[in-house]
Design a protein around this nucleic acid. Structure first.
Lengths: 349, 349
DNA sequence: TCGTTTTCTGTAAAGGGTTACATTTGGAAC
DNA sequence: GTTCCAAATGTAACCCTTTACAGAAAACGA
């Protein structure tokens, strides 16, 4: 049914080679007589011919596809990263194959397998969970390049942020405001990202000579619902914290709801800090103080590294993207800044 | 470099046909002597052989890929839809190719073109914008099935919600609470979805004998930032509305921030209703009253229709997914319900 | 032991492109 | 009008898999 290069060749009265040369004009500058080119082009558009990507990929050994694996598509943070990846990929003629693992190990490996099978030219793996198992040998088998975002790796390129440092800064910010009991909402022991953030939180406390109260560290899972219940747990302790540091913004939102529902106010009764700076955070009232991670840039950098590796085989590379604490209202540091701009000091507005 | 079926055949001392038969054991039940099968399987796993999807796709004329095009990946609504699609697709062995158009017409057509070139087995196009141009002829050229989500179409299958009815109900809810001046935050004249919602809003007003005040209808673009400025505009009118109906939750969030920043409160000074019921909405305080659209189900239904069409060529189909108004606190209807559950009457919790 | 089935395995074509190499063409130079 | 060279075009191999068909081996009955 589908019309092939042979159909075009026949209709135009030329050989398939000529058609191919006309169709890929941009790639190689083979000489084709303008008059011939014209004729072929006319037939191509008349017949609506499109080269078969499978056939082409088979021969060229490249698919023009970039695979991207994220842990959870419903967390607004990942779409931001994906947007960065997509912007760069699109600009270079690559398309994205997008998969969400829901943090399930079997899904993750099924997807990675499938992406490799599709002979993606590159693979971006986002997130710090441990559901991803990917050996260097596997990747070498397929001729694919890999870059991790937000996860350390001995074998592959990485683009990361300084989770520990950022969490330490955020915690220090709360300590500097006079808080002595700071709660931390974690998110599963298996997430590198969160483990690092927890380490930063603990480091800040220790550096200030405070002891670590395990009751103040509660486990979460990145969702609003669990942020809500975690905050309730913290605030109904015998010695509740006066400040809460949630390891992502979604949980911070849940925590904020819990605080309000307990009849307390943010930041007067409980100060609150999040992590990620997703778009909504600047529009909460009180606006959420959070660590901005430039998610789009994370994606951009990853894709740039990947492209370079695909095109000139530059090998493993590591990049860091800076973070900064966006001080808004939920921490109690700036009383009246909300008047000035809708997102307060949100640099992403 | 990559090992082929020939390498395996050679190593196992059999023909490529036998290897192929062993590798595709599930698909066709060709008889292979257990002893031979064993040997081939051993070589396959030792060598790490994986069939080349390009070669296979070339021959079989199917890619196992579903293309999905969304307008804006950073709007949490679309990831929900995508999750529904993915769940079904994954269960049936299909992979997703995911593209975000950013509501740009040229990007949209470039992506659709690319997806068709990849010979996707099906195409799901999400969103009501007019950036999508897709002719029946084009689709017929490739052997692809298409389903639209949230957009009417004379030629293709559709899965939709009753935007007009839902918006009318939401507006009626506000009117029933005694509001006489209800503002509407729209989102571009080119979006079908929003046009329908606006129609519902207008219909409700008219049915109640109210006249339409054009000042109360302001344009938006689906983002918090614009929801914020739109609400500010509405509330600084000479005769400001006492209620605002935002055509999606993100804009409602922006509007809520604007209301607070103007020193007013929700819902006492201004009642607020959104649309979509994204996960965050139940955790805002006051919790957002909004139209729940079961985004996941939208995706599920679309994918089911697509699968049926791919597998048994059933042709064009239409489905509707129900919506319902989730009454929380921002509309002022339920004063104390937030105490009971974190998301109030959010049925999705 | 020798047909005759039945079961298993191999051969080769097809699928739709790209491109090295061979061949033809067109035009310049004489 | 030749000759020659560069430009244009054509031929055919190759990419890797699946599968129809043919051929070989095993199983079976007599």
């Amino acid at each position: 049914m589908s019309i092939t290069i042979r159909d075009v060749a026949e209709a135009a009265g030329v050989s398939v080679a000529t058609v191919s040369r006309v169709a890929n004009a941009s790639a190689n500058n083979y000489p084709v007589r303008p008059q011939t080119r014209e004729r072929v082009l006319e037939v191509i558009s008349r017949l609506g011919y499109r080269p078969n990507d499978n056939a082409r990929g088979l021969l060229l050994k490249r698919s023009g596809l970039i695979g991207i694996v994220v842990p959870d598509i419903s967390n607004p943070y990942y779409p931001e990263v994906a947007r960065g990846i997509e912007d760069v990929a699109h600009a270079h003629g690559y398309k994205l194959m997008f998969c969400s693992t829901d943090r399930l190990a079997d899904r993750a490996s099924a997807y990675i397998e499938a992406l490799l099978l599709k002979r993606v030219d590159g693979l971006v793996i986002v997130g710090g969970g441990d559901e991803i198992q990917l050996s260097e040998a596997t990747v070498a088998t397929y001729d694919t390049k890999v870059v991790f975002i937000g996860r350390p790796s001995a074998s592959f390129s990485t683009v990361r942020i300084d989770n520990t440092g950022a969490a330490r800064d955020a915690t220090n910010h709360l300590l500097a405001l006079g808080h002595q009991r700071v709660g931390f909402i974690s998110a599963g022991a298996s997430s590198n990202t969160v483990n690092e953030r927890r380490r930063g939180y603990i480091a800040a406390l220790k550096a200030s000579g405070l002891s670590i109260d395990e009751d103040l560290i509660v486990d979460g899972d990145f969702t609003e619902a669990v942020g809500y219940s975690a905050a309730k747990r913290l605030l109904t302790l015998q010695h509740p914290p006066t400040a809460i540091f949630a390891s992502n913004d979604r949980m911070a939102l849940g925590a904020m709801a819990a605080i309000v529902d307990l009849g307390l106010t943010v930041p007067d009764d409980v100060a609150l800090v999040g992590f990620d700076d997703v778009p909504m955070s600047g529009y909460l009232r009180p606006a959420l103080t959070t660590v901005s991670v430039a998610a789009v840039e994370l994606g951009v950098r990853a894709m740039e590294i990947l492209l370079k590796d695909i095109e000139s085989n530059v090998g493993r590379r590591r990049a860091r993207v800076a973070t900064h604490l966006v001080v808004r209202d939920s921490c109690g540091a700036s009383a009246a800044s909300a008047e000035k701009s809708p997102t307060a000091s949100n640099s992403h507005a």
